Amino acid sequence: MTKSVLISGASIAGPALAYWLNRYGFDVTVVERAPELRRGGQAVDFKGRTHFAVLERMGILDEVRRRRTGTTDTVYVDQNGKQLALISGEFTGGDLEIQRGDLSEILYERTAADCEYVFGDSISGLVDTEHGVEVAFEHGPARTFDLVIGADGIHSRVRKLAFGPERDFVKHLGHYYCVAGASPWSGDGSRERQVAYGHNVPGRLAVTGGSKAQQLYMFASPELDYRRDDTRAQRDILRNAYADVQWQVPRMLDEMESFDDFYLDSLSQVRLNGKYSKGRVALVGDSAYGNTLGGFGTGLAIVGGYVLAGELAVAQGNHVEAYAQYDEIMKRYAKIAGNSNAGRFLAPRTATGIKLRNWFVGSRMFQLMIKYADKAANDIDLRDYPVKVSA
Rank of each mutant, 00 (worst) to 15 (best):
V5T: 03
V5C: 04
V5K: 07
L6Y: 07
G9Y: 10
L17E: 05
L21T: 11
F26S: 04
D27V: 01
V28I: 09
E32K: 12
R38Y: 03
A43E: 02
V44R: 01
G48D: 08
T50Q: 13
R57P: 01
V64L: 12
R66L: 15
T71C: 10
T71S: 11
D73L: 03
T74Y: 08
T74S: 07
D78G: 14
Q83I: 06
S88Q: 12
S88C: 09
F91D: 09
E97I: 03
Q99Y: 01
G101Y: 02
D102S: 14
S104V: 09
I106E: 05
E109W: 08
D114R: 15
C115F: 11
E116I: 11
G120M: 09
G120D: 08
T129I: 00
E130Q: 00
H131Q: 04
V135S: 00
A136C: 11
E138Y: 09
A142P: 10
A142F: 10
R143I: 03
G150D: 01
S156T: 04
K160L: 09
E166Q: 14
L173H: 03
H175G: 04
Y176R: 11
C178M: 07
C178Y: 00
S183Q: 04
P184S: 05
P184H: 10
P184F: 09
S186V: 05
S190N: 10
Q194V: 14
A196K: 02
N200E: 11
N200D: 10
G203H: 05
R204D: 05
L205T: 00
L205I: 05
S211Y: 15
A213G: 07
M218G: 05
M218F: 05
P222T: 15
L224K: 15
D225L: 10
D225W: 06
R227I: 01
A233K: 10
R235N: 01
I237V: 14
Y242E: 03
Y242S: 02
V249Q: 01
R251D: 06
R251Y: 03
L253M: 09
F262D: 03
F262Y: 12
L267G: 02
S268W: 01
V270K: 00
R271H: 13
G274K: 02
V281C: 00
A282Q: 08
V284M: 02
D286K: 02
S287K: 00
G290K: 04
N291S: 06
G295F: 01
T298I: 11
T298Y: 01
I302N: 11
E321W: 06
E321K: 15
E321H: 13
Y323F: 15
E328T: 14
I354H: 01
K355F: 11
W359K: 14
W359F: 14
F360D: 12
G362H: 14
S363L: 06
R364V: 11
M365R: 11
Y372W: 13
Y372R: 15
A373H: 06
N378Q: 12
R383V: 13
V387C: 10
S390K: 15
A391Y: 09
